[in-house]
């Protein structure tokens, strides 16, 4: 069953056409990868999917619901989670607080009287949820550290945890291994595989690490200069001459 169906997405920035009639389909529980050279429009595509940008043309359906005009926060409530290429954690908060914000936003705990009557303290259920999510990613020990003290590898995992704690059906990951060393990348790949298989979360992954894509992804979508130049099962796409010329040729000999 198709979970996400984006059709003919076009996005222009003044003169530049960042995306030209790009399609992307992700089935429930599927692991898809979006690859392409820098500037191909991958992050722009993600931003259109999550509502940070409004595409000029094209439609996006999620679970057969048209996402046109649905604000980003609402899309998260529908079950789309994401991480960012340039890490976006909330400053001045602990790791647990990052997850707490996500949990409360999904439980609609934003009401004023809630704060006034109950003080907004951490409940034991919330503590359990945050602990188990962090433990699953192997970062349970840093739950109460301020985010400013984290290494880049830790911070990427915290971002992932924050997205996971909302229990998304679809997870958009924007270069989760960027800036990580080989060991951290391996850990990240392991975690992602675990997430996708155990919780049957569908994943769309932007990634430059071709080996990681080859290991994880079932299908691959290749963008170049804002256009979709190939898509299909991973091994078929990797064998495609066009794709090798545009992107892979530089890395896979």
């Amino acid at each position: 069953m198709t979970l996400l169906n984006a059709v003919h997405i076009t996005k222009r920035f003044d003169g530049l056409t960042a995306l030209k009639a790009v399609d992307l389909q992700v089935k429930a529980g599927e692991f898809a990868a979006v690859i392409g050279p820098n500037g191909a429009g991958k992050s722009t595509l993600f931003n259109c999917l999550t509502g940070q940008l409004t595409p000029d043309e094209g439609t996006i359906h999620y679970n057969d619901e048209d996402l046109r005009g649905v604000p980003p926060a609402q899309r998260s409530l529908l079950g789309i989670g994401r991480t960012f290429q340039r890490i976006q954690l909330f400053g001045g908060m602990t790791v647990r607080d990052q997850l707490l914000v996500a949990i409360r936003a999904h439980k609609h705990h934003g009401a004023l009287w809630n704060d006034l009557l109950r003080g907004g303290h951490l409940t034991s259920a919330e503590k359990e949820t945050t602990d188990s999510t962090l433990d699953r990613l192997g970062i349970g020990s840093i739950a109460d550290s301020p985010v400013e003290s984290l290494t880049l590898g830790m911070a990427r995992l915290v971002e992932l945890a924050r997205a996971l704690v909302t229990q998304p059906q679809l997870l958009l990951l924007d270069e989760p291994s960027s800036g990580l060393d080989r060991r951290e990348t391996a850990h990240m790949a392991q975690v992602l595989q675990l997430v996708c298989r155990e919780e049957s979360v569908a994943v769309a992954l932007i990634e430059h690490d071709v080996a990681m894509v080859g290991d994880l992804a079932e299908t691959v979508w290749v963008l170049d200069y804002g256009q979709l130049i190939a898509h299909g099962p991973t091994q078929e796409v990797f064998a495609d001459e066009k794709v090798r010329a545009a992107y892979l040729g530089l890395q896979v000999r």
Partner: peptide, 21 residues
């Protein structure tokens, strides 16, 4: 409380805050 956390999340990273609802 929750309000303060939401506001701070929006202030320090609006995109991320929206991405989690």
């Amino acid at each position: 409380g929750t309000m303060g956390r939401f506001l701070q999340a929006l202030y320090t990273s609006r995109d991320a805050a929206e991405s989690i609802g």
